[in-house]
């Protein structure tokens, strides 16, 4: 088969809903796009540990402390599953990691905002994880087998992430005046950055069409964003939280909630590195990576010595 025929056969497999596995033939561009998208997803899980980790030592009850620690730990696990899936495409995890620590690779811009009060932890669970679930539920049907499987596992584990956040936010929203203030303030700060999590509008999303054609994704950024807004409005109303958007209005015709203009300037600025926490997040991750080097080396050296001894003995 020549390349054109291979491409055609590949597209036919995709259209039939077949899963592509690591050793199958795939267009180089498909592979590249997957590596970019999957590693970005993995980096986001890892950097995402930092804003929430910020409150582990200050969580207001032992129950909430354990919930938060377990959740942050899950994020490490999810990052690991995703790197593991990306590695099936013939790349090394440490190279991917160094690409975002020292190079140009991106992670979700949502994690470049600070967590200022404990209510932020609740809102991250409700909105940020809620948005992630919308996205990951779609990705669980992705055409690339390892990526789909990683997302299935993540979705199973992540449902508690959103629930715990929403549950605690509901308590705060109906709690003492101080708690109510914290809850609303957190929603005000996180609402717009959360909507940006779905990526630029379809008109400005260069990768979308291709990813949909290859069924890596099955919905566009705007479609996902809309279904997230519809659900969040309902959930906000249920617990007496106000969404900070004066233009939010139910559209009888479409059956969806229309919302105001997303501050895209801010989105592009934060993506390019100028958000309130970009530099600190990278600094913290680089520090962990660099200070971990001697530990990783020691373990390898021990393994080498041990093998040498065993080889000698036999």
């Amino acid at each position: 088969m020549n390349t054109q025929e291979k491409l055609k056969a590949f597209q036919q497999r995709i259209d039939k809903g077949e899963k592509i596995e690591p050793k199958d033939w795939m267009p180089e561009r498909y592979r590249k796009q997957l590596i970019r998208m999957m590693s970005q997803h993995a980096h986001s899980e890892i950097v995402g540990m930092l804003p929430e980790g910020n409150w582990i030592t200050r969580a207001p009850s032992l129950k909430r402390k354990m919930v938060l620690l377990a959740k942050v730990q899950d994020e490490a696990g999810h990052g690991l599953y995703l790197y593991s899936a990306t590695e099936t495409l013939g790349v090394k995890r440490q190279n991917l990691v160094e690409d975002y620590l020292y190079g140009k690779a991106k992670y979700s811009s949502i994690f470049n905002y600070p967590t200022l009060s404990y209510a932020d932890i609740c809102v991250i669970g409700w909105l940020v994880d809620g948005a992630a679930i919308v996205n990951q539920t779609m990705l669980a049907k992705s055409s690339y087998g390892p990526y789909a499987r990683a997302n299935i596992r993540i979705c199973k584990e992540e449902s508690f992430h959103k629930k715990q956040g929403y549950e605690m936010l509901a308590k705060m929203a109906s709690g003492s005046p101080d708690q109510q203030k914290m809850a609303q303030d957190a929603v005000n700060r996180w609402w717009w950055p959360t909507l940006m999590m779905f990526g630029p509008p379809d008109t400005e999303s260069p990768n979308s069409a291709e990813l949909i054609k290859w069924r890596v994704k099955s919905k566009t950024n705007d479609e996902l964003r809309q279904s997230f807004v519809d659900r969040s409005v309902m959930e906000a109303q249920a617990i007496g939280i106000e969404i900070p958007d004066p233009d939010l209005k139910y559209n009888e015709e479409t059956g969806h909630w229309d919302f105001g203009e997303i501050p895209w300037d801010e989105f592009w600025r934060v993506i390019k590195g100028d958000g309130p926490m970009n530099r600190e997040r990278l600094k913290a991750r680089r520090k962990a990576y660099e200070e971990g080097a001697w530990v990783r080396e020691a373990a390898m050296e021990y393994a080498r010595k041990k093998k040498l001894k065993e080889d000698k003995a036999s």
Partner: peptide
């Protein structure tokens, strides 16, 4: 990626 940052000799 700049090589002087790389700690990737021991994955």
């Amino acid at each position: 990626m700049s090589a002087d940052h790389s700690n990737n000799n021991v994955e």
